[in-house]
Amino acid sequence: MSDPTDAPLFELDGVSLVIDGTTILDGIDLEIPARGITVLLGPSGAGKSMLLRLLNRLEVPTAGEVRFRGRPVQEIDPLELRRRVGMVFQRPTPFPGTVRENLLVAEPGATEDEMARVLRAARLDPEFLDRDADELSGGEAQRMCLARTLLTRPEVLLMDEPTSALDPEARRGLERTAQRIARRGRPMVWVTHDLEQAQRLADEVVVLVGGRVATPEQRARYLAGEWSGGNGAAGDAPAGTADAAGSGEGEAGTPGRGGEGGEAGG
């Protein structure tokens, strides 16, 4: 029997997503490993966030199949799936009330100790429990949202550009927190269009362009910071890439790690 952590966390087979006649994702074949931080990288409009939303079934694919730990997600109760696959959104979404009340939304029976534990894991002082969630700074609010998600004891965290609304200092702080959480055995799928952030965070990188997994050429250009802009849809993609996109090169590749690729920042 092989190590269960070697089995992919998520598998996507020929996944397409069409919304109101617009193709958002087109024939995605992808495996996301069950360890570390996998970064979904790509220009705005490449379909990264939508791909993430397929993983906890906030969206359902028009075609293809998404599997979580080998099981098609549509066979898992969506409420159970979402507690096992936690998600932090692009903008902090504090609910009305105190931090404690926010945490209790996630887990109504949570004890003070459990709430303090998740706040510490998100690098927030437990004294924040009685603070009004609406009065937190952007960084604090996003940490509270992370703590709220952690309270459901998810097996994996989906992070949808969680630092895009934060100042640089808060951004780096949240990144370090995420790395710590991932090192402690909770894998993460992190969406960003920020190449430097991907290089700081990623154990694996998947580059998406125009709703498809990037071809090796597109990937090399993107990681080298040579992408000319645009999401790769329609005229953006280099000629001849259309057939290559769904051809199985979607296994997450090894990126430049932890600041090694600084010269590539574009």
Binding site: R82, R83, F89
Partner: peptide, 20 residues
């Protein structure tokens, strides 16, 4: 919508997520 989906993502059923 962001707040509703944040509640759904925490595993709340739609009845609960939409209630407020």
């Amino acid at each position: 919508r962001p707040e509703v989906e944040a509640r759904l993502a925490l595993g709340q059923p739609w009845q609960q997520a939409s209630k407020p």
